[in-house]
Amino acid sequence: MIAAFTWTEFAEQIVSGLADGSVYASLALALVLIYRSTRAINFAQGEMATFSTFIAWSLMNHGFSFWAAFPVVLAISFAGGVLVERVIIRPVEKAPVLTIVIVTLGLALLLNGLMYVIWSGGDRSFNGGFSSRTIKVAGAHISIQYIGIIGVLAALLLVLGLFFRFTKLGLALRASALNPESSRLVGIRVGWMLAFGWGLAAMVGAVGGMMVAPLQFLGPNMMQAILLYAFAAAVLGGLDSPVGAVVGGLLLGLTIDLLGRYVGYIGSTLKLPAALLLILVLLLFRPGGLFGRVAERRV
C-alpha cells in the first residue's frame, strides 16, 4: 500500500506541500481578515487575487520586471480593496450576512467577466520572480521557486504580525473587529477600518495570486479551485484566527501532497476529498477549528 519511501523524496514532498500550503494560507488569511470584521465570507477573494495577478502580467508586458511590478500591484490591490468596500459593500453593511455573501458572489462574477473583457479568456504563462531550477540539498532536489514562495509568505506574515501587534492602526483594526461599538466610543472610525481591512485582504490575496500563477497558467478562473482549498484551510484553522488560517493552509497543503504521494489507493485522484474528509472529522471534535473560539454571546 505504501509507495517506496526515501528521506530525500520525503523532504521534496514536504517542501512542495508547504509551497502549495503557502498559497492556500495567503488566500485563507485574506478570507479571515474580512470575516473577522464583516462576519461574511468574501467569495470574490479568488477573482480579486486573479485580477491583481493580471495587472502584474500587464505591467510585466510593459517592461516591468516581476519584482518591480510586485509593490505596484500590492498598492493597486490595496486601493482596489478599499474601493470595493466603500462602493459595493458599504451600502449593504448593515444587511444580514447572507446579503453580503450574495453581493460578494456577484462581485466575483463581475470581476470574472471583466477579466475576459480586458485580457480575453485564454490561459497564459506567467513568469514569477524565482528561478524554476532546483538546488541539491543533501541529495534532495529542492525547487527554488517553492522555497521562494514559502519565504515570501513568511515575510508577509512577519510584516502583518508586526503591523497588527505594534502599530496604533493595527490595534485599532483589531479593536474594531472585536467590538465596533466600543471602538467608536474611543474615537476609531470603524467604517474606515472595515475598508482598510478589505484593502489588506486584497493585498494578501494578490501575493497568493502572483505566487501561484507561475506554477500553473494565468487565466480568469485560476483561483477558483484554490479559493475552495483556502476556505477549507480557514475553517480548519478557525475562521476567526489569522494564525489558524496560516496553519490550516500549510497543513492542508502538506496533507494533500503527502496523501497523494504515499497512500497508494488515494493517489492523485482522491487526495483532495481525502484531505477534506480529514478536516470534517477534525471539526467533529473541534467545531471552532484548531485556533477558533466557539461563539459565545451574552444576551
Partner: peptide
C-alpha cells in the same frame, strides 16, 4: 475588547 490584553485595551482608549 475581549481577546486583547489589559495594556492593549487601555492603549485603544488612548486612540
Amino acid at each position: 475588547f475581549r481577546g486583547l490584553t489589559v495594556l492593549e485595551n487601555v492603549q485603544v482608549g488612548a486612540h
